[in-house]
Amino acid sequence: MATIYDNRRGISRRELLKRGTVGAALIVSGRAVISPENAWGLEATALSPETVATLILIARDIYPHDQLADRFYAIAIKGQDTRAAKDASHKALIEDGVADLDKRAGSGGYRGLSWERDRVAILREIETTPFFQAVRGDLVVSLYDQKELWPIFGYEGESYSEGGYIDRGFNDIEWL
């Protein structure tokens, strides 16, 4: 199983927002992709760790939110590795898809392209492929269904246990 090691220091939301994540490099070490700055690692089981690191960047390029740390994208693509472990054809789909992107990107590979603009241009070329569809289709659920990131977007989630919003601002708009 792919495992996400949680950041043990517990970064506050403010800190998360403050901390630019774009420059924070991911390191591949052994079977794992590690974010040394934010103290988490993702262990790849079926896919190569390089592929996993590239997937994390692809995920960000598909649904870019600068206020989200890489770990949210890592959690979001974790399912691809899990599925690849069970399904050889899925593993091939992902490995081949990433290899294709690396080839299109030139000598430095996909992760070697520094500008999002250049990476997105390549993704646009392949957006109708089964590889892209599989990654995006899963991601739109696996990314936005993470409860931990809802507050960053201002979505409060479950409200029954708080007694609903009847006394908590269902009609508190003031700017109209």
Binding site: G154, E156, S159, Y165, G169, F170, N171, D172, I173, W175
Partner: peptide, 10 residues
């Protein structure tokens, strides 16, 4: 809009 709505409340 420029300011919050919180449409999901209620």
């Amino acid at each position: 809009f420029e300011k919050p709505v919180h449409m999901y409340r209620g």
